[in-house]
Design a protein around this nucleic acid. Structure first.
Length: 117
DNA sequence: CGATTGACTGACC
DNA sequence: AGGTCAGCCAATC
């Protein structure tokens, strides 16, 4: 193994995240309880507003859903992801409602519950 | 290493 | 008014 690509040392030290993914996770983890954020917002806070797709991919791999409340992340329409295959079904909606965020049929009122950094 | 996909967003018709 | 197309970045196969 010498050539080819080297493995970046993930888990640098808590906050310093040299990896884009870890950076996104750090932002998602900063979302306060009872509030939701959009992919674009997370991407912008992570460092680039064009990472919206990367954010979705990052949450898709979701290495640690226990500390990454991906259920607090919704698209710009306030609608939860259809491919929310984590946990199972409307589980995320229940979690949001449990935090004080009414998810009407999977749709949240961003005008009221969107996370304001 | 090259090509493809992906939990998005914004602009255009 | 609504639907469709393209763009962007990174990770995976």
């Amino acid at each position: 193994m010498t050539s080819l690509q080297e493995k970046p040392a993930r888990q640098h030290d808590g906050q310093d995240a040299p990896n884009t993914f870890d950076r996104i996770y750090a932002v998602v983890r900063q979302i306060p309880r009872g509030r939701v954020a959009t992919y674009g917002q997370v991407a912008a806070l992570a460092g680039n507003p064009r990472w919206s797709r990367v954010v979705g991919y990052a949450l898709h791999v979701n290495p640690d859903p226990a500390h990454i409340p991906c259920y607090r992340v919704v698209n710009r329409f306030g609608r939860v992801s259809d491919a929310f295959a984590f946990g199972g079904g409307n589980r995320q909606i229940e979690l949001l409602e449990a935090e004080g965020v009414p998810c009407h049929d999977g749709v949240v009122d961003l005008g009221t519950y969107q996370w304001q950094a």
